[in-house]
Amino acid sequence: MNNISDYAIRLFFHFLVVLGIWKLVKPLIDEQLRYIAKKSEYRKNAKHFNEASKRNKRFIYRHLDNLLYLTQDKYEPFVSVTKFILQSGFLLVGIFIITLLTMQELPSLFSSDPFFDGNLQISNIETIKSVWKLPMLLAILAGSIPYIVMRYKYTKRQTEGSYDLLDVVKIYAKYTYLSVDAALYATSDFLMDNNVLKRPLRILADEFSNYSNETMLQGEAQRFASSVSTTFARIFISDLLDAEKEGNVNLNLSLLELNDSMEQQRETILTVKANNSDAIKLGLYGNLLVFVLSIGTFMFMLKPGLYFKLQFQTPIGVTFFMIIVISFVIAFLFSILLSRPKLDYQ
């Protein structure tokens, strides 16, 4: 038991070393990325932007860029995506190295593990060949955590953004006498800091003030609408594009109608949610209750010692336990997300 605690402490300090290295190189990476973004004028140079979109913006890049656009409060084109990829890659490599280095020192504890070949005392090279599978699995799981967290945060913020759009519409309606970009800037400044659309709205304002062709403006406007992903957001963006093209003559009336529709739908959603609050709570905590009761029942029937031995010292027990835990976490997250539907017509 003491050996295991020693190895756990050693693993912890290995992780601290890798974390310290990342903290040292992170400022240099940030500075270099901002220098590259500024030099290429990524956001302001339309020609470069269009070429980069065709040449560099592959599916993975576009996907991460759209997620970070809504989830990162200090989102910067090109910089945020590159930094996220580097952080995830550094985490994957770091976890693999520290796990591999630590596990080379305790081969006897894992001699019966299915990830190993069982021949772990020949040499360092042979040990590495034998133990690389589990560290690689742990590294992949660790490296995917930032994406999973960002994906969950994106889904949550999409829902929040659908409600925050109501504030945007209300405030923007007061500035319809201004140009579209000026009204967007004023609306963004007036929004609370906890409004998830504050930063995307300012980016949209930058695009309205600096665009050089209609295709570029359409792309940024549709990205804003897609980040909220509601019919109300598409109507709002359509109104802005019409106002930019034809003037603000009918904009105020259109926004007032949109505001009334959103208010009415919001009241409907709140009413339905109140009527189904018990079912929502059951979905949130029912699985947790079943999970705890099932474990408690098995421990009572088998005795704690035998239960832990069967659950955590056999491949089948560990596999099923991981499947149950992962399924429970996924169901719990979905229950949280579904407990507050988007502010939309559906």
Results as ranks from 00 to 15, higher is better:
S5Y: 13
K303N: 10
N3F: 09
A186T: 11
I85V: 10
D193R: 14
I21Y: 03
S179A: 04
D344E: 09
R10D: 08
G247K: 03
V329A: 13
F328Y: 15
I323Y: 13
S40W: 06
N66A: 14
F232R: 07
I235V: 13
L258V: 02
L204W: 04
L197H: 06
L197G: 07
Y177E: 10
L109Y: 07
V272D: 12
Y175C: 02
L165R: 05
E207M: 11
D344T: 04
G118V: 05
L204S: 02
S40P: 00
A233P: 06
K38Q: 15
I9S: 13
I330A: 14
L197W: 03
F12C: 09
L16R: 04
L333R: 12
A52R: 09
R10M: 08
T102F: 00
L337P: 04
K342D: 01
S226A: 15
D113C: 02
D181K: 07
K23C: 00
V17P: 09
L310K: 07
Q346S: 13
N275W: 03
P107C: 01
N45L: 02
Q218I: 06
D239G: 04
A139E: 07
L282A: 14
S339R: 09
A46Y: 07
R199W: 00
M262S: 08
L141A: 13
M136W: 11
L101S: 05
I316H: 06
Y163L: 03
N3P: 03
A279G: 07
E160A: 11
G283Q: 11
Y69K: 01
